[in-house]
């Protein structure tokens, strides 16, 4: 442990981090700080101390094993901008600013559990799994279903998110989002696509209280890719499936419309840029 104060711990290994967390009830796990620090500033979060993962070297970095990318939970978003996955690169490159991307982490993006966070549609479309580690061992859970409500996850007490595993694919992958301006914007809505074996798999941000995908949408997207359905058909399938939030940024109707547009945009890119489909 590099530093152990009553309300602050700077562990160097995952076991040290778990022990530090157990010793500090009410402490928040902080990796890059880009999520937690503004929350504390605006008093949208309370915390009784920090356990910082910033110096746990084993949690940083990307490895390729058995057809998967294994991404350490505190790998900075800046490192994902050159990851060997086009969907991840696109989502990471449009997150925050260069000065934020060096600190923001993939784990923080997941644990924030907000439906508009950049990396989440890509992880959902790509079929990611999460590695959760506690003092008694590790378990792997699908990312699909991990987020249960805005800001809430299936992470148990005394557990840490230690890695994100993303299946490698040879198809086309991309991410796109729209916001209220073209600089430093949070997604009003967003979408990601992964296509493999001739099928398209889409996932959406701000299409529901949690990151969202649906088999009906994927069926319509694959049909569009194969020339068996029209863009309007896919937009209709998206509009029927989603349940977007309504807030001061945008109406639910706007989001429903924009999500359909983004879905068609990504399938078109898969066909034109990826050379997929009929």
């Amino acid at each position: 442990m590099l530093l152990a104060a009553p309300l602050f711990a700077l562990p160097e290994t995952p076991p040290e981090a778990l022990a530090a967390l157990a010793d500090r009830p009410g402490a928040v796990v902080v990796a890059g700080g880009t999520e937690v620090m503004p929350d504390l500033l605006w008093r949208t979060r309370t915390a009784a101390g920090f356990v910082s993962l910033r110096r746990v070297a084993a949690l940083r970095g990307i490895a390729r094993t058995d057809g998967e990318l294994v991404i350490g939970a505190t790998t900075p978003v800046a490192a994902l901008t050159s990851a060997p996955d086009a969907g991840l690169r696109a989502a990471a490159s449009s997150l925050g600013t260069p000065l934020v991307r060096t600190e923001a982490t993939i784990g923080g993006n997941v644990i924030s559990a907000l439906p508009y966070r950049n990396l989440l549609p890509t992880l959902l479309a790509g079929g990611a799994t999460l590695e959760l580690t506690s003092a008694t061992g590790s378990r792997a859970v699908p990312f699909d279903g991990f987020i249960t409500a805005p800001g809430r996850t299936g992470l148990a007490e005394g557990e840490l998110l230690t890695a994100v595993r993303l299946p490698a694919h040879r198809g086309f992958a991309d991410y796109t989002k729209v916001g209220r301006r073209n600089a430093q914007f949070v997604a009003t809505v967003s979408a990601a696509i992964v296509s493999r074996d001739g099928g398209a798999r889409l996932a959406f941000g701000n299409a529901a209280p949690i990151p969202f995908r649906s088999d009906d949408v994927d069926t319509a997207a694959t049909a569009l890719l194969d020339g068996q359905a029209s863009a309007a058909d896919l937009q209709a399938a998206v509009a029927a499936a989603v349940d977007p939030p309504e807030d001061t940024i945008a109406s639910a109707d706007y989001r429903r419309h924009a999500l359909g547009v983004l879905a068609v945009r990504l399938v078109t890119r898969a066909a034109v840029d990826g050379g997929l489909g009929a």
């Binding site: 620090m37 920090f50 910082s52 910033r54 000065l99 060096t102 600190e103």
Partner: peptide
């Protein structure tokens, strides 16, 4: 921040003690 990887960052976002 003690990991041998100096880079430009927003100092407002870094909990100070992580730079110990």
């Amino acid at each position: 921040l003690g990991d041998g990887d100096p880079h430009v960052l927003c100092s407002c976002l870094v909990p100070a003690a992580t730079a110990a």
